[in-house]
Design a protein around this nucleic acid. Sequence first.
DNA 1: GCATAAATTAATTGTATTATTAAATATACA
DNA 2: TGTATATTTAATAATACAATTAATTTATGC
Lengths: 209, 209
Amino acid sequence: MKKNPTQDITTEQLILATAEKLFLEKGYSLTSTTEIAKIAGCNQALVHYYFRTKDRLFDAVFKKHSTIFISSLLQRMEDHLSFEEKVRKKVEIHFDVMMENPGLPFLFFNEINTNPGRLNQLKVQIGNSENSFISQIESELSLEIEKGAIRPMTATGLLLTILSMNLGLFIAGPFLKTITTMQDSEYQNLMDHRKRENTTVILKSLRPE
Amino acid sequence: MKKNPTQDITTEQLILATAEKLFLEKGYSLTSTTEIAKIAGCNQALVHYYFRTKDRLFDAVFKKHSTIFISSLLQRMEDHLSFEEKVRKKVEIHFDVMMENPGLPFLFFNEINTNPGRLNQLKVQIGNSENSFISQIESELSLEIEKGAIRPMTATGLLLTILSMNLGLFIAGPFLKTITTMQDSEYQNLMDHRKRENTTVILKSLRPE
DNA sequence: GCATAAATTAATTGTATTATTAAATATACA
DNA sequence: TGTATATTTAATAATACAATTAATTTATGC
């Protein structure tokens, strides 16, 4: 069945992995099935044999990564944590996922602008998990607000702040890196620092008065 | 010289305007010179007659919009304003510019990922204006920090926070709008609210302790 | 009005791309 | 071993695109 039985990865998986890499780097339209095949080291027709169309192939990649992204944002935190610790950890986890998948915002953003239809498949995913982080912190949040420990806001609003800060940084970061010709190590330092900074900003934004 | 002398807009300007619209909507690679010509109502060769290559045409669009974007972020505020008022106004101006040019982040972001070389031309632009907002607030900021009115941070760091928050929102916003099938008016309300929210978050993030 | 230059078009070239088809090769399995 | 099935390839069709060329139309200055 397999041509190269020494490797335990199938050709199909190899094609998918290659496509993943290229789509994340350059987006849908700048990536050709020819290039995917070339880099994967197989015939171009094979890409279509396994995935029929470029669009379906992209879809496979998109599904996988949207799941990573969405769940990092919406997953519940451990219940025993305090409210502030939940928020802090949420920021950090979301940040780390983006750090590990720097191509992710690009993939998403590109799709919103060029093919918003593809986002529809996310509705189900998000609808299902809506009673996750948001519903988890909702009651706790209104309690803190009543106590006067936190200024009035909604759970969704808080989540949007977290998303904005982290997402914005991962868009602005590469931009900054490019125009200031920063070294990789410098960039790493910057991002480490901004992770702490983003957490600080968000936690401070909760304060009342 | 002009085919249609009743309009005071030249064909060249019309082509540029059409290209602007399409590039902002769909990015470089999904926009063809054929489509530009079609929508502008002229022959495709004319696009190349005026701008030689698609790349140069894009460059013209990019230059124009990058100037808008960069200067909204780096321009000095009126000197007479208090420090807090300077920050507040900076957030609002930057926000408003993005609101008026919703395609702008996409244009930039796309270029970073697909053709970082084009960003080099921004270096000069940014280098020149570096002694603008940042240098304007730098001394004032360190004064406030010494007084203990603001927690320790750099002017660049503060600007990055502003950029992150606003940019992030304008990426996350369309995403939210799409997956929640929001009406335009609802979206407008959301953004109005988030403008105030972003300002609040950023001003709160200055607080010491 | 006429010559010159500018603006515009039709036609075409070369290339890249997605997708399909039919043939070839490898694998499984009985 | 032999046959069915899965995998892989070469070849190619169909299309879209950027860019060029030569010809045509339109405007301008004299």
